[in-house]
Deep mutational scan, measured.
Amino acid sequence: KEQQNAFYEILHLPNLTEEQRNGFIQSLKDDPSVSKEILAEAKKLNDAQA
């Protein structure tokens, strides 16, 4: 469930490039146990690119 939530949120971050988004999603698939950390990174990058 946590992985699904992170997946959904990353898909809807407006400021990520397609490449960045795909990278985060691939990381989620590779290691779902760190989905919280991956989501935090994605949000940080999204904010930095706002």
Results as ranks from 00 to 15, higher is better:
residue 1 K to A: 13
residue 1 K to E: 15
residue 2 E to S: 04
residue 2 E to T: 04
residue 2 E to V: 05
residue 2 E to Y: 02
residue 4 Q to K: 06
residue 4 Q to S: 08
residue 4 Q to I: 07
residue 4 Q to C: 08
residue 5 N to C: 12
residue 6 A to E: 09
residue 7 F to K: 05
residue 7 F to H: 13
residue 7 F to T: 11
residue 8 Y to L: 10
residue 8 Y to H: 03
residue 8 Y to Q: 04
residue 9 E to W: 15
residue 9 E to R: 14
residue 9 E to N: 09
residue 9 E to T: 14
residue 11 L to D: 05
residue 11 L to C: 02
residue 12 H to F: 10
residue 12 H to S: 10
residue 12 H to C: 04
residue 13 L to D: 00
residue 14 P to R: 15
residue 14 P to N: 11
residue 14 P to S: 09
residue 15 N to S: 06
residue 15 N to C: 06
residue 15 N to E: 04
residue 16 L to S: 00
residue 18 E to G: 07
residue 18 E to F: 14
residue 18 E to N: 11
residue 19 E to R: 11
residue 19 E to P: 08
residue 20 Q to L: 02
residue 20 Q to V: 02
residue 21 R to C: 03
residue 22 N to A: 13
residue 22 N to K: 14
residue 23 G to W: 15
residue 23 G to V: 14
residue 23 G to F: 15
residue 24 F to E: 00
residue 24 F to V: 01
residue 25 I to S: 04
residue 25 I to A: 05
residue 25 I to R: 04
residue 26 Q to I: 12
residue 26 Q to W: 12
residue 27 S to R: 14
residue 27 S to K: 07
residue 27 S to D: 07
residue 28 L to M: 09
residue 28 L to A: 03
residue 28 L to H: 01
residue 28 L to E: 00
residue 28 L to T: 03
residue 28 L to K: 00
residue 29 K to R: 10
residue 29 K to P: 02
residue 29 K to Y: 13
residue 30 D to W: 10
residue 30 D to A: 14
residue 30 D to H: 14
residue 30 D to I: 14
residue 31 D to A: 10
residue 31 D to I: 07
residue 32 P to N: 03
residue 33 S to R: 09
residue 33 S to T: 13
residue 33 S to N: 09
residue 33 S to I: 09
residue 33 S to Q: 14
residue 34 V to I: 12
residue 34 V to K: 05
residue 35 S to H: 12
residue 35 S to P: 05
residue 35 S to D: 10
residue 35 S to I: 14
residue 35 S to K: 07
residue 36 K to F: 14
residue 36 K to H: 08
residue 38 I to E: 01
residue 38 I to F: 03
residue 38 I to P: 00
residue 38 I to T: 08
residue 39 L to I: 11
residue 39 L to A: 09
residue 39 L to Y: 07
residue 39 L to C: 02
residue 39 L to R: 04
residue 40 A to V: 09
residue 40 A to E: 13
residue 40 A to I: 12
residue 41 E to P: 00
residue 42 A to G: 02
residue 43 K to L: 09
residue 45 L to S: 03
residue 45 L to E: 03
residue 45 L to M: 07
residue 45 L to H: 03
residue 45 L to W: 11
residue 45 L to K: 03
residue 46 N to G: 03
residue 47 D to V: 13
residue 47 D to C: 09
residue 47 D to Y: 12
residue 47 D to Q: 14
residue 49 Q to D: 03
residue 50 A to H: 10
residue 50 A to G: 10
residue 50 A to T: 13
